[in-house]
Write a protein that binds this DNA or RNA. Sequence first.
DNA 1: CTGAAAGCGCTAACAA
DNA 2: TTGTTAGCGCTTTCAG
Lengths: 329, 329
Amino acid sequence: MKMSIKKLAKLANVSATTVSLVLNNKPSRISESKKSEIKELAQLHDYEPNFSAINLVMKQSKTIGLLIPDIENLFFSALAKKVEDELRQEGYSLIFVNSNDDYKQDLSLLKNLVNRGVDGLLLTVANDSIKHKSSYESLLKRLNTPFVMVDRNIGNPNHPQVFFDNKLGGYMATQYLIEKGYKKIACLSTKDISVNGLYRYEGYVKALEQAGYNIDQSIVFSGDYRFQSGYEIADKLILENCDALFAGNDLMAYGVIKRLRELGKNVPNDIEVVGYDNLEFSRMLGLELPSIEQNISDLGKKSVELLLNIINNHPVDTVIELKPTFKKY
Amino acid sequence: MKMSIKKLAKLANVSATTVSLVLNNKPSRISESKKSEIKELAQLHDYEPNFSAINLVMKQSKTIGLLIPDIENLFFSALAKKVEDELRQEGYSLIFVNSNDDYKQDLSLLKNLVNRGVDGLLLTVANDSIKHKSSYESLLKRLNTPFVMVDRNIGNPNHPQVFFDNKLGGYMATQYLIEKGYKKIACLSTKDISVNGLYRYEGYVKALEQAGYNIDQSIVFSGDYRFQSGYEIADKLILENCDALFAGNDLMAYGVIKRLRELGKNVPNDIEVVGYDNLEFSRMLGLELPSIEQNISDLGKKSVELLLNIINNHPVDTVIELKPTFKKY
DNA sequence: CTGAAAGCGCTAACAA
DNA sequence: TTGTTAGCGCTTTCAG
């Protein structure tokens, strides 16, 4: 039989109030003997408070919603893990949903999450949601639930957000190649499909310009973060006589390297490649791929911190920028 | 101002019941005009039902708890994704927690999930929980919440469960190597740390015995599913003159292959390796690694189906065995 | 030191 | 065709 406060109260010959006070360790002047009696009784009968009832009266659910494009993406699974861990330590649970990077899904999932009564939202919006900024913003306003934009923003500096300096990442990667003396440094960019990709590309441009290189659009290629799009542009790299490449992420770098090797090229001797993400697979497979690393653990931790601060009305900086680091390998 | 049924009722000059009836599309004899008036009003005021209140009165939360060892593991992220997707279609949300394969975490997370009022549990228990079968079972009984064991069991055929035939997988992998004529087929097993690893090993043994091979424990190695444990046993493979290896998963196979190549060996010509999981990274990195594939999507779908059937008291088979398949590459 | 009573937002018998 | 009433399990104010 499921225990309730009332039943416990009856068993202990006290009122529900007393039980509630005792079990929640609220300051009260209830005798120690009664206290321990009640606690033992609760233990004995496996009493567990009913969350719905508490949530109803307390107007909070101790639940946070996490909206991400795809949990199968290593970046997001690492993020989700950290977030879950941090939240749990603070007594929160995590409901997560996948948008598959689809803007429509984003909106509907967002509403759904709020309906379910989450206390706050951690949002990594779909890449194309920036094109729908206004409907996004109006929804966010109507929902009236604390949120933090994680890793991606829709271009509003007023939103609470935690993100990496992607321009710096692109800059560092390119700078490394410049310093090694490469003359024709290509870029496999994702600037057409993502803001972060655009920033990375801007970093590439900045480094080149600073070093007095021309920006040659014929060696700026377009990718979609996937292996295949790297694989497909490798031939062009050779045609254009490039001696180095900054790839927007490791997966595309893998694609490039695979194809280059099939074509008899040596990486890094003939063409050096720098990636982004610093996936552990590189090392596992003997690829010595220099890469830009983002501390995802930090991202998760800071995002949770910020969100909880907002929920609890602690005044804090709501825009947090994290720096990537360059890993030789 | 947050809308409630009562306020809506006041605005529409009807009772709360009426509003509830209308908004939930319950059969009633309320005039169409009233109906549409109420619906419009709800729309206008952005009315959203309060989940906690509904849950409290309906005694259900439309939330499922997913307990897994590690969302960063590709197997579990794929599972989580499918599960989330399937559940969402049925109107459920997913709370997930990571146990880090720690039995103690398992127990405490389990309780926590139930306290939060989930309607059901999807459990992939920690590998060492089989050693604590009894405390696990007594907790499960006390919690009194519908559950399904996913992919791993604690050795109780009476528990609802969905899992793969791991023995068959080990058998198929070994059989493939036997048919190719290899004479000294090693095994990198995880039988010491996981039941599924043990089953895979048993499949290996069965195939060898059937083909008249001796089981030679000096070429049965012990691993922990990680890259490193593959890397570390590669040398022994050569020492023992093995010409083939069945590895308990792809990650360990990667480790073996990396080290074999460092030692100047050709894979598969000198030593052929078969893995388990059929990770897409194999292909991305030009490794032609034959592997046993498990349809994770199926696992997720079937698990959700089973759990919801149990929750809804639909009589069904509660033990579902899925077959792995062999992928040449 | 403790209890009564009200109320969170909703549903569902039962009336009318 | 609609409203009244009670109650889900809990917290909290206020009274004793």
